[in-house]
Design a protein around this nucleic acid. Sequence first.
DNA 1: TTGTACGCGTTATCAC
DNA 2: GTGATAACGCGTACAA
Lengths: 339, 339
Amino acid sequence: MLKSSTINDVARLAGVSKRTVSRVINGSLAVGESTRVKVEKVIAELNYSPSPQARGLASSRSYLLGLIYDNPDALYLDDVQRGVLEVCSQLGYELVVHPCRYRSETLVQDCFAFINRSKLDGVILLPPVSELDHLAAALKEAERPYVRLTSVLLDETYHSVVSDDRAAAAEMARYFAQLGHQDIAFISGPQRYKSSTERMEGFQLGLSAYGIKLRPDWIVEGNNSFETGIECAQQLLSGTDKPTAIFANNDQMAAGVLKAAHELGIKVPEQLSVAGFDDNLLASRIIPALTTIRRPVRQMAQLAATKIIMDIEDNRHGAGHVAAKVAPTLVVRESTKRL
Amino acid sequence: MLKSSTINDVARLAGVSKRTVSRVINGSLAVGESTRVKVEKVIAELNYSPSPQARGLASSRSYLLGLIYDNPDALYLDDVQRGVLEVCSQLGYELVVHPCRYRSETLVQDCFAFINRSKLDGVILLPPVSELDHLAAALKEAERPYVRLTSVLLDETYHSVVSDDRAAAAEMARYFAQLGHQDIAFISGPQRYKSSTERMEGFQLGLSAYGIKLRPDWIVEGNNSFETGIECAQQLLSGTDKPTAIFANNDQMAAGVLKAAHELGIKVPEQLSVAGFDDNLLASRIIPALTTIRRPVRQMAQLAATKIIMDIEDNRHGAGHVAAKVAPTLVVRESTKRL
DNA sequence: TTGTACGCGTTATCAC
DNA sequence: GTGATAACGCGTACAA
């Protein structure tokens, strides 16, 4: 493990002082053109790159970003990680991951232990953890840069990247209505999640534009799992009059609906249209392939990384001007059909 | 962002020297019992934790582990991350993720740039990147601790955690045979992956124990994607005589087989038994639920983290004695049936 | 058993 | 514009 060259080596070979090299590295304007060129040449020759460790020690920064989440959907997570990395690795940051438990009493403490231990420069919060206002408040209090990925604006724009789930759900409603469906059911996610209420309200709003109102007994709540999707569907499909279409809060539950329908001998999409939300791996693989909503997760992650780095590098104003809202899109597949 | 306390604060309040505090932190034996207690008390009061930054600078370590992968399966990745973190966060390490491109010409350079930039203490390699002997060789050459997660032993045991895919595939063969199947087809993964050849050979070996031999034209190669799964299945199921069972190299392709069978009007499992490998999210959600092989991914990740930290902390001997092999298990669901 | 002094690689404060 | 020099927080010869 040959030790790499240091700023001293560069300084010596370039015949200048450490301080000057440091200036060049950090793009200070106050360096003579010829000196700068000379130094840059040596840097290139030595293949030198500054040590984040030492850098951090001196400037109390770590060049480390944290990703905090408690997310069941691995695909979503992977997408986020890749999006964040595309931005941050280019700017000299690395990403440290931190799964946690949303319902833990000690969540805030856990997060801060994580942050302090590694002296993270900032953290990105994924839903549903991102919806926790007290966590965000604590972060703000501690003046620790953070960005929240959410389904509705909950914070200043420089702290937020939001996907307009409400509008997306409304679009699904419009699509259902235009397919001729009137008897529509909705399987919601846990009401404690903002994403759940946003999607439900958006769906209802979209439906009402067509004069359609959801029957109260056709709004049931699951916990976003495959299993509760099955249970909710069984409940919905066991009555004498059945819905002709079901919109589930996510793909997992929609898959559960498919399963339940299959067991009840109900054909999808011939007798029942089903749609989900997320467009995760499942959606395109399952039979029939699921009509769903796709969020531009990768793009959201990139925006989040951009914002947080801007904030860290003392340009919160700039961070506020990066787009904060992205639009999910409807993906039509095989699980929905004109009535 | 109030600055946290340092080793000096602890020393001052405990009325001892820095050096002594340092000894306590690092568990040196050469500290008087009363002194130790006193120091530990102050540490607790101050909620002090040493800065990895400064620590690293002084001892040229970073307390950072890297995870290098180019993996299509997000669920697998998530499992690995959680497994690694369970171990390493407890021992004061953090995990930095690094997706890369398996087929890149500059893969080794990329990885080393990543490692050197953050001065990682060690890296964990996931398949298929873990199968690259020249990467491992470079790591060894650079004396950088690493552990490879593979499907067959490719390296010293202290560099390896392997799942016995060969044995697992053989078990699937036995299961198929005992179900009475004789006309069996196999969809392999890319032959450049060791995991593919291991599974194929294991399957063939297992079958031969029952006097069954795979017809050459019933061994087709996909690239582990859903799409190639469909294509391979179409090819397999278009002839006059069809196999009664298909074993695919992974769940994605098995899902493709289900899709193709569905489109061809072939009922699974009544007319065709299908099995996959991985037990990823898909397997239990799809209709019919997939019979497959489950690897103890979480456990493998924990073992890998344990080994690498042992190696880092200069106990390679110990690392070699941690289990290096784990056994995947057969998970029977609905997609297979007695002939 | 405990303490002193210095080094790790960088940034930041001043002078010049 | 440039350069000594002092931090930053911790580990570690070397002494005591």
